[in-house]
């Protein structure tokens, strides 16, 4: 459903992402790994439209979205979380979800003031479900900035789901989590696949990526150096060289 064709992003002379091809199919969890600075986050930002691509194309469900405005990509079914959590700190937990839920499923930019009666009841109900999902029902009226770190991660995850995506981009969702929280996250990600969502997972925590991914792609210096099942990737000599350094040098 997501297909990157020769995607590139150059910052001046730096080729942060350089001709990457990648496919994510429906209901599939694809891991994207690589050493620091290998272009993983830039790839996510390109897919979300934070940066315009220098070259290449991004296809989503058959449509070319390379030049589509970022918010329209979200409304089209492509949501994300951030490496460093970005919540609306001074809004309440409920409002954070409410903002994202209300833009869900809008094909075109309409209804800034519309959708008063019928839609709101359904939206409110689904925000309740998301609160339940994130385990934050009792803290719904708390200002987000006052939440604990793990709760903020769960809320951001729920906010991404509030946009009703069919593909979710998770940018290092386990960063800063303890083992128990990572276990919980793992269940949540697997649960997404069960619900038919596709996930592009960027992660440094290898136990998590290796455990949940159907397929893994490895980036190094902006290029894709390997792709395959977790077992294949672990055995791949280029990947070992990229992570551990080349023994012969």
């Amino acid at each position: 459903m997501l297909e990157l064709k020769g995607l590139s992003k150059h910052f001046g002379g730096v080729k942060a992402v350089d001709g990457v091809d990648l496919r994510v199919r429906k209901g599939e969890i694809v891991g994207l790994i690589g050493p620091n600075g290998s272009g993983k986050s830039t790839t996510v930002n390109l897919v979300c439209g934070v940066y315009p691509a220098t070259a290449g194309r991004i296809m989503f469900e058959g449509a070319d979205i390379t030049r589509l405005a970022p918010h329209k990509r979200v409304r089209g079914g492509l949501a994300r979380t951030f490496q460093n959590i970005r919540l609306f700190q001074r809004l309440t937990v409920w409002e954070n979800l409410w903002v994202a839920r209300n833009t869900a499923g809008q094909g075109e930019p309409r209804r800034l003031f519309g959708n008063w009666v019928g839609g709101q009841r359904a939206a409110r109900a689904s925000v309740e479900e998301l609160l339940e999902f994130a385990g934050l029902h009792s803290k719904r009226d708390m200002v987000t900035g006052a939440l604990a770190f793990g709760e903020q991660r769960r809320l951001e995850f729920a906010r991404a789901l509030a946009a009703e995506p069919r593909l979710l981009l998770l940018d290092e969702p386990a960063a800063g989590m303890n083992l128990e929280e990572i276990g919980d996250l793992r269940h949540r990600i697997v649960d997404l696949r069960r619900r038919g969502l596709a996930v592009l997972l960027i992660e440094h925590v290898m136990e998590l990526v290796m455990g949940v991914s159907d397929r893994i792609a490895v980036l190094n210096f902006g290029r894709k150096i390997a792709e395959g099942s977790p077992a294949e990737i672990q055995a791949h000599p280029d990947v070992q060289a990229a992570y551990l350094g080349d023994a012969e040098v």
Binding site: C48, R86, L87, F88, R90, E95, W98, T103, L112
Partner: peptide, 25 residues
Amino acid sequence: RAGTVWRAVGEDELAAQSAGVSITA
């Protein structure tokens, strides 16, 4: 709803955009 969305944009534009909000509008 519009007020909440406006405040969300005031808080963090990138996050609001990623929640499907049109910053321009």
